[in-house]
Design a protein around this nucleic acid. Structure first.
Lengths: 351, 351
DNA sequence: TTGAAAGCGCTAACAA
DNA sequence: TTGTTAGCGCTTTCAA
């Protein structure tokens, strides 16, 4: 066996047929091939341990079997669930998924996009890239538009300042739902632990929080709101600040579960009991949420499905004839995934 | 601007130069190009919004800029940390990472390997694929050997029955260390929650557990050992079974943190306090470990670094001249990463 | 300093 | 039923 990667030509030569015939057999083409020839080719493939070169094939076919995913940080449960769904679905359809962590760094998001397009991805799933930075939009706008124009679908998983199809959550609704839930339990002094200022998701959830308060005629108290990272550490810091410097509160809404887990530790550290002393809710329902202590009341976001659906959208377009047109038609497509509150044990009524 | 993806030829034509010259400018070749020409080309690139085609480039160059990663399940913290390290490092060197979840299904692992080689990955990181199934080894053996022969490095992150370079943990040592730690705290009845029978990692940790017991002259009691999935659910189930049907124990060693988290819930559900009633240790030190209640005493495994190192190995080989030879030389390379116990609050002394 | 041309491995239109 | 051939978009000798 050769050290070099065998090519179709090697197979054809060994089987004593033309390269075309070999190709036909290997691809299971509809074109008729005699049983005997077929066998000879297959034999040669086995002998040489031949594996087709996807690069050459895709180059020729002018299409590709890859999809890119830009995420904030793959080790954050939210993104890993999304990616898992995306990968499962991509693989199911013979596509491979390229993944990149962009850590919400504008330049890095753009660079991932560039890399994926160079690799001729059929589409890109953009998660955790809803930066509020205006300078960044501009460049994104350029990049995404030009990708779309060239037939590469870019699907967003959050509010985007750039026009593109989205599979998303209604973050304002999330903020409202959780706040209303707490209000419904009789809480009036509700602290809000927000995600980073740098992304829209945070602002939207915060807005939902305000809206719910307003509707319930509860005054909005800015001292009850703290912004930090969407991480356990961020939640810990935010809750700590609130406990130490903020006015008293009977409930807290952490804008994602990771932060809620961090807040839980902050409370524990100070001997504050959840939910006896303070109630707590998160959002997203990451797998961990039911294993925290106490199990976290939160809101289920179908992360896995979002990954699946984003990929499905890409697949749809890729399968069509005029991709650029299909993309234009989808420009304003927005699918809002269903949301559902999951009640566990971190909330007490103010009865 | 065209809907079609512009090619180098389009750029050349617009700039009024040859395709060769355009290529030289775009690749920053050492070959001299007049300043004026360079500018014209760059201008054309901008106008057309040209992005080189990585497929064509790699096809020609006979190399590739991609690395594959086969993991068990990307939403398991262990793998997502490894992948994060791998991706960061790959990207730093201009490579893109393709990721696949194989869920420890033999056929699926093989299919990922096939896909990656077809896509001409420079190498593949194999994590969570240390299946004990003999039928599977055989096929793996064939596949991996043929990949290595063709210059594709396959790096393992766990014991492999197939010869390949590995960046790994000494799982027997892990089993021993944690058990000895518990013994050192005066525990004698130590339950062991093992990972799935299907992979070597579980058996190795189990063996370490036995060895430590033996050295300490503590009888091994099979009723104190339960096997289940390496997940929170698995840990919950295993601990529940142990509590309900097993003989009494004062400490439990869960072979990974996820399972420990699950066990924690099982204890809590039954009003068993950790560490007052029973001590608990896990392994790996996933980010969550310090946020559990109580914070988990565990063993730090440098997951991120393992990903980095696995990719580094691939990069080294890819950069060399004779790849197949470099791979042969690395065949038995085994790097054992440093391990360190992290003491938190889930263990009490039997003083 | 520039360009012509060969060819990476493959598919598909066309011919036989 | 089989084969010839023209590229896909790019890099890279080699020649001018």
């Amino acid at each position: 066996m050769p050290d070099r990667r065998p090519s179709l030509e090697d197979v054809a030569r060994l089987a004593g047929v033309s390269i075309t015939t070999a190709s036909r057999v290997i691809n299971g083409s509809a074109h008729p091939v005699s049983e005997q020839t077929r066998r000879r080719v297959l034999k040669a493939v086995a002998t040489l341990d031949y594996h087709p070169d996807a690069l050459a094939r895709n180059l020729k076919r002018q299409l590709t079997q890859t999809i890119g995913a830009v995420v904030h940080d793959i080790s954050d449960s939210y993104y890993s669930e999304v990616v898992r769904g995306a990968e499962d679905h991509a693989r199911r359809h013979g596509y491979v998924l390229m993944v990149s962590n962009a850590y919400r760094i504008g330049e890095r998001i753009l660079s991932c996009l560039r890399t994926f397009r160079e690799h001729r991805a059929a589409g890109v799933v953009l998660a955790g890239s809803d930066l509020t930075d205006r300078g960044h939009w501009h460049e994104m706008q350029r990049q995404v538009e030009s990708m779309q124009r060239q037939g590469i679908v870019v699907v967003g998983l959050a509010t985007q300042k750039v026009r593109m199809p989205c599979i998303r959550t209604d973050n304002v609704a999330i903020g409202r739902m959780m706040t209303e839930y707490l209000l419904g339990k009789g809480h009036r002094r509700i602290a809000f632990v927000s995600g980073p200022q740098a992304i829209f998701t945070s602002h939207e959830r915060h807005q939902g929080y305000r809206e719910a308060l307003e509707r319930a005629q509860v005054a909005y108290d800015p001292r009850l709101v703290v912004w930090d990272d969407f991480t356990k550490e961020g939640g810990f810091r935010a809750a700590t600040r609130l406990i130490e410097a903020g006015p008293p509160f009977t409930a807290m809404f952490a804008s994602n579960d990771e932060m809620a887990i961090g807040a839980l530790l902050a409370f524990r550290t100070r001997g504050i009991r959840v939910p006896q002393d303070v109630s707590l809710v998160g959002s997203n329902d990451i797998p961990l949420a039911r294993y925290s202590y106490p199990p976290l009341t939160t809101l289920r976001v179908p992360m896995y499905d979002m990954g699946v659906q984003a990929v499905e959208l890409i697949l749809q377009v890729a399968a069509g004839r005029d991709r650029a047109k299909a993309i234009r038609d989808l420009q304003d497509f927005q699918h809002f995934v269903p949301l559902q509150i999951v009640e566990r044990d971190s909330v007490a009524s103010m009865a």
